[in-house]
Amino acid sequence: MSRINWLLMLSASVLSLALMSQQAYCNDSTEQINNDSCMKCHKRNGKMQGHHALDELNLSCSSCHGEKGNHPKKPNDLMVFSADSDLAVATQNNACLTCHIPKKLADTEWTHNVHAEKVACSACHQLHPQADRIMTLTTKQRSDECQRCHSVQR
């Protein structure tokens, strides 16, 4: 009986240890990009949880957003990727096209081709959250996504 008790306690402690370490991993990411000096201020909105956080990619915040320069003073050369960004679509997209090749993008999704000059990547893609919503759309959601822009008054 005591042996069973002992085994039970051991397994419980192992489990709790594992959980604690998991917690620690979440709180203090080991990824290099999330230990960037930018994170000192941008704790809340700066964290990279998506695929681009992979250490193998060897990315830093400045890889996409550009060098710090004057920041946080304005004006500065930092690039902001959003719908209300002042940057031209081509400038925003060139940051992505540093690594992504148009041909490959077209092979995986034909809509890349027709929007290449008109829509910023960030209009559909979100890099910071863990999952990019656009990658897991159902067929119905997908056509809804087209209709966000393509719709005429009846």
Binding site: P102, K103, A106, W110, N113, V114, A116, E117
Partner: peptide
């Protein structure tokens, strides 16, 4: 049915 792309990147259409 979709055919294409026609034209050269980035000016393409289907």
């Amino acid at each position: 049915e979709k055919t294409g792309p026609y034209g050269e990147y980035p000016n393409q259409y289907y």
